[in-house]
């Protein structure tokens, strides 16, 4: 509805020209910093190139790297770990974010302070947060052990040395850090729901739970989907948490796909194959984005029009 009401004034040739000129700087920036690296990476992934062995040159190998990727058990394991991380962290962040949003949407004394405090973890750089969680989970001086076991040093657990608990701590760190972001998006959605509807529902006889289930949740769907989109894509690209806290260990237990790509490229010097992994991540995220935009985008517009 709104789209139609924004009827365009007829444009002259000169107007169009000015318009093009005005988007030109942005096009240049996007081309240099986004388009060129993406295209160049794709071209790189079609070559075999070892960093330490210049004598082998950079032969064109077509899709060989991609064939290797499909048959690489370590890559499959890394994808599995990544998928697990995406599922666990996104689900927890949305649930916790919804809870936080519902609380800070209510009126209470000191709400402004609580809202600000909730955002603190999100404002901390991930590398700093990761380092902090590494300390917290340390087997000798970690606060987690101190809180759980106190002086009983014998019972201290090397959290980051066990495959499952290491994975758990990384999920926990991510949930701690980004739930507030999800909460912020969901809060914005909550604020779009008119109070009138809740009054009407109360008069209609709906209990608090029924109001949540029949009004809040369905009307929050666009906001929840938006949060889901952002969190899934972000979680799929997870790198810094793993890099700082576990370096993919113990074994390959926390080796997510981005970290595997990084290791392949920079540690092992296999530029062609490492780039192939990056391009694969890129394509997966691109597909996810398209999927969500198709799902969410239309709904968001529909919502605006009411």
């Amino acid at each position: 509805m709104h789209m139609q009401s924004l009827t365009r004034a007829p444009r002259t040739q000169a107007d169009r020209h000015t318009g093009r000129l005005m988007i030109l700087p942005m096009l240049v920036v996007v081309s240099v910093f986004s388009l060129y690296p993406a295209v160049d990476s794709f071209l790189l992934s079609l070559h075999r190139w070892f960093l330490g062995l210049p004598s082998l040159g950079r032969p064109f190998v077509g899709l060989d790297n991609y064939r290797e990727f499909l048959q690489d058990p370590i890559a499959h394991q890394a994808l599995l770990v990544t998928a697990g991380f995406v599922l666990a962290s996104t689900a927890l962040e949305l649930l916790l974010g919804l809870g936080i949003a519902l609380v800070i949407h209510e009126h209470f004394v000191g709400r402004g302070g609580v809202r600000a405090a909730i955002l603190v973890p999100w404002a901390i750089p991930t590398v700093v947060a990761s380092q902090m969680w590494r300390f917290l989970a340390n087997d000798q001086y970690g606060a987690i052990n101190l809180v759980l076991f106190g002086d009983d040093i014998g019972a201290y657990v090397p959290w980051l040395a066990d495959p499952w608990s290491a994975f758990g701590i990384i999920v926990l760190a991510d949930v701690w850090k980004t739930s507030s972001f999800a909460a912020l998006l969901i809060l914005a959605g909550l604020q779009l729901i008119p109070d009138d509807l809740y009054d009407a529902a109360r008069v209609d006889g709906a209990t608090a739970w029924q109001r949540f289930w029949h009004l809040t949740l369905p009307l929050l769907k666009p906001a929840l989907l938006t949060a889901l989109l952002f969190r899934t894509i972000d979680a799929f690209r997870v790198f810094d948490l793993v890099f700082v806290m576990t370096q993919g260990g113990p074994g390959d237990a926390t080796q997510v796909i981005q970290f595997y790509g990084y290791k392949t490229l920079f540690t092992e010097g296999r530029v062609g194959y490492g780039t192939t992994i990056s391009v694969t991540v890129f394509v997966v995220i691109l597909m996810l984005s398209f999927l969500y935009v198709r799902m969410v985008g239309s709904k968001l517009l529909e919502r605006r029009a009411t």
Partner: peptide, 18 residues
């Protein structure tokens, strides 16, 4: 409100949009 057995018509109608 739910136990007062009343019905209310609101200025902005307050129809459930979904």
């Amino acid at each position: 409100p739910r136990e007062r057995d009343i019905a209310m018509v609101f200025q902005q109608y307050a129809l459930y949009p979904h």
